[in-house]
Design a protein around this nucleic acid. Structure first.
Lengths: 241, 241
DNA sequence: ACAAAAGTGTTTTAGATACACCCATGG
DNA sequence: CCATGGGTGTATCTAAAACACTTTTGT
């Protein structure tokens, strides 16, 4: 990628993505360890090309990181609080780290561009964690799925952003039937229930939960899942598109 | 105000405000007639100072237009669709209009700044319409309260923005008890009901509506309102802060 | 036959809606 | 005392929650 320039990208405006996944009964978020500085974590993000809409930018950024197209994606709010204005605790360490990391690409002008005050637009994405093969961005050492319960402290206000994304997800999960984006193509009712329990951090009784989900009439029943366990085999379901 | 410069304001990022008011059983929006071009209408908006948060910017813009402090204000979403990118139908007419309007202030640089591609962050505000004495901005001929039912076609995607604001208002009205911001300090139950009917464009039976609102336990009953009509005098209520 | 968990039916409760009635006010 | 709309109580309906029970599977 070339140097960041205002001719190509909108300055002072970024997109941050909260990528949700689900595994081992836990709601997880994909976060990145930055390759400069030490112990700096952040959300995957990027900038907006002059020629694309913000939704397109978010899709593109997600495509670059996950390799997945047609991901469920939702804008949930913009962040432009005082902790994003000049003087944020991370600014100087990031500037030093960038310069150290690649002095050619990050000349003074580029460092100014990247570490300027930013407003960011938050998007959250729901993906089938097993289908994702995370690709690191250019400032990143590695990407990692972390349970939403034990996220590290991240740069800027990224912890707040995850919190808001989580809140928004909870509000939309019921009414928009988006939860199935977090599951594999085929799943059992118990898995759906456990997903909901992970999102709401609250238990649901199986029978009532099943009644409610089946009542939505969005699932089709396929066969049975014989696990070898000494109990009745659960049905396998698929989401009716 | 000085010429718009990136040094002072964030470039390519604006705030547009949907200011809701309520009168004559109608939900109204404050819109402005632009003073250049002909028959151009838009939402009141502004830019973000480098030194302020986006919430502060929205409050400031609202203060400048309504003279009111402590207004109920909520960010509802950001807009950066393709109709906001270069080539929008209004771009050329706006450029010509600006140049014509004030050639000194709007030199080529300033016109470029103002008519560049913009991403905007939408806020909606709820105000007591009677308390507002609208003040025109510098490109505006006058401001006007218009029923949300018969808004004119506005520049850019401002009609879409109002639609989204209205949707967001409907979602929040119930759970956040924000509707009282649209009413005078003192009001009758019938007025509350009619406000809700205006927002939802749907009728509510009086007795059940009253039961629900009083059940929220947020109103205090003051006296009675003797209108001179030959019927029982309704109670006057006030919102318990 | 038994343990474990899936799956389904019935009762209970709570909240919303519909219906019916009485009350205050001014002419 | 009557017309008008304000105000309140009761019955009905519906959907969620609680409870109880049967069925399937592998050992």
């Amino acid at each position: 990628m070339d140097k960041f320039r205002t001719g190509d990208y909108i300055a002072q405006l970024s997109i941050d993505c909260v990528i949700f996944g689900y595994k081992n009964k836990e709601l997880k978020v994909l976060i990145s360890k930055l390759s400069y500085g030490k112990d700096l974590w952040s959300l995957p993000g990027g900038y907006i090309l002059q020629t694309e809409s913000i939704d397109q930018a978010a899709s593109r950024i997600l495509m670059e990181r996950t390799g997945l197209d047609n991901i469920y994606l939702e804008q949930f709010r913009a962040f432009g609080g005082p902790d994003r204005i000049i003087g944020s605790g991370y600014r100087e360490v990031v500037r030093a780290g960038l310069k150290d990391f690649d002095p050619k690409k990050f000349d003074d002008e580029a460092i100014d561009w990247v570490t300027n005050r930013f407003v960011c637009i938050g998007y959250y994405a729901l993906v089938d964690l097993n289908k994702v093969d995370p690709k690191i961005g250019e400032f990143e050492e590695f990407l990692k799925w972390v349970s939403i319960e034990d996220l590290p402290e991240m740069t800027h206000d990224h912890n707040t952003i995850v919190g808001e994304a989580h809140k928004s997800l909870r509000q939309n999960l019921d009414e928009k039937l988006i939860g199935f984006n977090l599951l594999p193509d085929e799943f059992t009712m118990r898995e759906v229930k456990e997903l909901y329990e992970a999102v709401y951090d609250k238990e649901f009784p199986m029978n009532n939960f099943q009644k409610k989900i089946l009542g939505l009439d969005v699932l089709e029943r396929l066969g049975k899942k014989y696990t070898g366990a000494q109990n009745r085999a659960p049905y396998i379901y698929r989401f009716k598109s």
